[in-house]
């Protein structure tokens, strides 16, 4: 049994049918554009706008072939860029945020509550306030047009949301376990690696999946920092493709759009539960 909702008021069958119809209608309207996008990407160009049907009359993968090589650099290359950046971001976030969360929840040190308050404060501060100096700094470092500005900040726990998420989880791990480990002679490092991290796989997985998806989806940072098309992420590539095709090849554009969403969709299908629980427990954005 996964559905645990109980009808509070004992609705009548009629109301229930109405609720059903309403929810079904809303989901259809919501999904229609997505389904249309996917189905159109398999239609020949002339069929896309001649019918609203979701089932292609002629099924073709031609649009994918055209789109894949539609820019001077193949989309495959940009997917690889995106994947590398997203995976590095995952590693960076997991390492740095779990360390910070461990310090905040488990270690006693001077100034802990002061830094904790500041950390919460950074969650409130819009990134725009630091954007320009950050850009100028990375420009000075010679990092612009490399993936470093996209990746290095993740290793410095810039996404305080993940610290917060992990703090919530770590707080649920009984302190007795730490104390038992202290009695067993374990120091902070050993407790972190042997007790806290192994017990935190659910939250680490949640943070990893969110990290991947958000980095994959990120448009703003790559837009600012990456100039050469060989370094583009899939998102940047897609947006360049919009300009390049000038909307003359909708099929190819929709095919590439579908492809850029596909990794997220797969992660969504596989980790649906984790994602939804992550949202529900922390009320995180998106």
């Amino acid at each position: 049994m996964t559905e645990t909702t109980v009808d509070a008021t004992g609705s009548s069958p009629l109301l229930r049918a109405f609720a059903y119809a309403a929810v079904l209608a809303v989901s259809f309207v919501m999904l229609y554009p997505l389904l249309w996008m996917v189905s159109s990407s398999f239609k020949p160009e002339n069929e896309i706008f001649s019918t609203t049907s979701l089932i292609p009359e002629t099924f073709t993968t031609d649009a994918y072939r055209r789109g894949w090589n539609g820019l001077s650099v193949s989309f495959g290359w940009m997917f690889l860029n995106s994947t590398v950046i997203a995976l590095l971001a995952v590693v960076g976030n997991l390492v740095s945020c779990s360390m910070a969360a461990y310090a905040f929840t488990r270690l006693q040190f001077k100034g802990r509550s002061f830094w904790f308050a500041l950390m919460l404060g950074t969650m409130m501060l819009p990134q725009h306030a630091v954007l320009i100096p950050q850009y100028l700094m990375f420009l000075n470092f010679g990092w612009v047009n490399t993936i470093l500005p996209l990746v290095v900040p993740k290793f410095l726990a810039i996404d305080a949301f993940f610290i917060f998420l992990m703090i919530q989880f770590f707080r649920g791990i009984p302190r007795d376990l730490d104390e038992a480990a202290v009695m067993d002679g374990a120091g902070p490092l050993r407790i972190f690696f042997k007790i806290i991290l192994p017990l935190s796989t659910p939250v680490l997985a949640t943070a990893a999946v969110f990290s991947f998806i958000w980095t994959w989806d990120d448009f703003f940072a790559p837009l600012i920092y990456l100039n050469d098309i060989e370094k583009y992420t899939a998102q940047l590539g897609l947006r360049t493709f919009v300009d390049a095709t000038a909307q003359s090849d909708w099929g190819a554009l929709l095919a590439m759009s579908t492809l850029t969403i596909l990794p997220i969709f797969i992660l969504f299908v596989v980790f649906q539960r984790l994602l939804i629980e992550g949202i529900a427990t922390t009320g995180m954005k998106r």
């Binding site: 945020c97 310090a103 270690l107 500041l118 410095l156 972190f192």
Partner: peptide, 13 residues
């Protein structure tokens, strides 16, 4: 130990 574990965040901050 506290500052060691916090150091990535501190540097980032």
């Amino acid at each position: 130990a506290g500052y060691g574990f916090l150091s990535p965040w501190l540097l980032g901050f």
